[in-house]
Every structure is written in C-alpha cells, then in structure tokens.
Amino acid sequence: MGLAIETRNLVKKYKTRKGSSITVVDNVDLQVEPGEIFGFLGPNGAGKTTTIKILLGIIYQTSGDAFILGKEAGDIAVHRELSYLPEKPYYYEHMTGLEVMQFYASLFGMKDIAKCKSLLERVNLGNDMNRPISQYSKGMQQRVGLAQSLLNDPKLLFLDEPTGGLDPIAHIEIRDLILQFREEGKTVFISSHELSDVERICDRVAIINKGAVVAQGRLEELLVGGRIEVTANNCTTELADSLRDSHNLVSINHGRMIVDIPDSKNPNDLVGAIAKAGGEIVSVIPRRKRLEDFFLEAVSGDNIAKGRHQPSMLEATETEETDS
C-alpha cells in the first residue's frame, strides 16, 4: 500500500508588494504512512497551514510535488476520501448543528439524516443538534467540525489545531476521538501546538521551522537520549558564570541554580564543582527527553526557542534549512 501523503521538494513562495519573494514552504519532503497519526509541528508562521492548504488543493505550490492517497493534491476524486477540520472553524451561524451536518453531507451528494445524527451523537452533541450553532461553545463547534469531517468515512483526516483553545474536558474528548480514528484504520494528519497531545497520540512527527522540515521520524527514534537536571542552592553568580560556557544553565535566581547536562555525561564532575564553590546540591534528577525538549532543540534558531537549550544540529534533519 502506498503512502497516504507524500511531498517532494514542495515549495511555496509569495511575492511581496515590493517585488521580492518570500519562501513560506521550503523544499518540504513528507512521508505519511497509511493508518498512522502524524504530527506536523512548528512555531507560528512556520508554514504548517500553508502546507495543509497545498495538500488540500486550496492553494497551489510554486514547485515540487504533493500526492494524497497516491493521486496529485487537488484531485477532486481524492476529496471524497479525505476530510479537513480547519483551525478555528466557522459555520453558518443561522444553522443548527444538524443543519450544518446536512449541508456538508449534501456536498457529498448524501441525504442520510440518520448518519448525520449518529455522528453528532458520537461527538456528544446528541442533545444539542437542534440548537443554532451561534449558541454553541468553542468546544461544541470543534466537535461539530470533527463530526462533519467523518461524514464521508474518510481514509485521511487533516486536523489543524484540533484542540486549540479548548477546556481540559473538551480537550480530552477530542484527543480520545482522534485515537479512535486510528483504531478504525484512518490516517490522521495533525497540525498542533499541543506538544503533550502530539507526544501522547502521534506515531510519527515532522517539525517545520521557517518553511523547512528540520526533523521527521518516529517519536521513539527522535526522543532518544535524555538529560540530567542538577539543582543547587547557595550558588553565586560567579559559579553560574563559570559553568555557563560548558553547561546548559537553565536558571540562577536568589542563589538557586538549575543546570542541565546530557544523560550521556557523568554528573559527578558538575556536582563536585558546585560543592567546591560552596553550593548545596538539592537534587540530581535524570529526565527522559520529551517532545517539547526535542521541539525546542529543532527550532532553536528561532527566537521563541532561545533560553532552555543550546542549538544543536539534528541528525534527523533531512532537508537543508534556508533563510526565509
């Protein structure tokens, strides 16, 4: 069975009013296997939504190839087999939840009201389906979005920030629904900032920064290695300064210092140096590498990532980072 999504050297450039061009998507190569939940991560403005729009055929690539379920992106026949939940979905407010479902069903030529109702019940909107959408909370609107995305029993779902801005209960409900999709054999492509969710539910991820994919692979392969967090009290700024160059100094505040070292290093040297300078060791805690750590490393060239981690080159990088 072929790939659910494949892009090769995908590039999207926009022309500015001054005549120059901005590269929003820069030689992106993605491979998404059928039946997996694929996380597409990146800071704001990294090119995630633009890539999704190209894959959906809503906008067109400047160069490169994009294939969905073996056919070229934008092929209308593929649209029968995929669905899309946009970030902050908006629906015609005069409609009820059920009418929204019937409207989207009609775009597939379906008139199956029973299916519309059962999908709304599946997302726990059975009692609210006849209320106008304008009275729905954000979480309810998101659930309508998920319900409409299931109308055609899609093989592939694109979910753009599906849990963004939701309360914890709605958040968990939607996360659980996404996990159910995988059990049903659907491929799910999620663009999200919720790294804890992605780490929990995704099989593979790609991280995009400034338009270029900076890492891609299975989570267990990407999250190898960890760090050791050493916390000490009574530390002087001189001690902190002496460690700053050779270690990752997380913070120094009122004599309390936190230093990170890779778990491949022996912490005894650091502990000894701190004790020698009069510092009092509070804890030495090995920490498993989290997706958040990996993400920050991957986008460390970007302003938002500065602070916690030193820049490092990623072995998983498959494409060249370019200035944009």
């Binding site: 729009k53 959906l56 055929g57 809503i58 209308i76 026949a77 649209h79 029968r80 995929l82 669905s83 899309y84 939940l85 946009p86 902050k88 979905p89 908006y90 629906y91 015609y92 989207y104 775009l107 597939f108 979005g145 409409q148 055609n152 694109f158």
Partner: peptide, 14 residues
C-alpha cells in the same frame, strides 16, 4: 475571511 470556503473546498466541490 470566515474560512468557510476551506471546509467547502476540501469536499468534492469544484
């Protein structure tokens, strides 16, 4: 502006 077009064009609608 309201992005309704994205959901519609992601369906089999030309």
């Amino acid at each position: 502006e309201r992005r309704t077009i994205y959901t519609i064009l992601s369906k089999p609608v030309l």
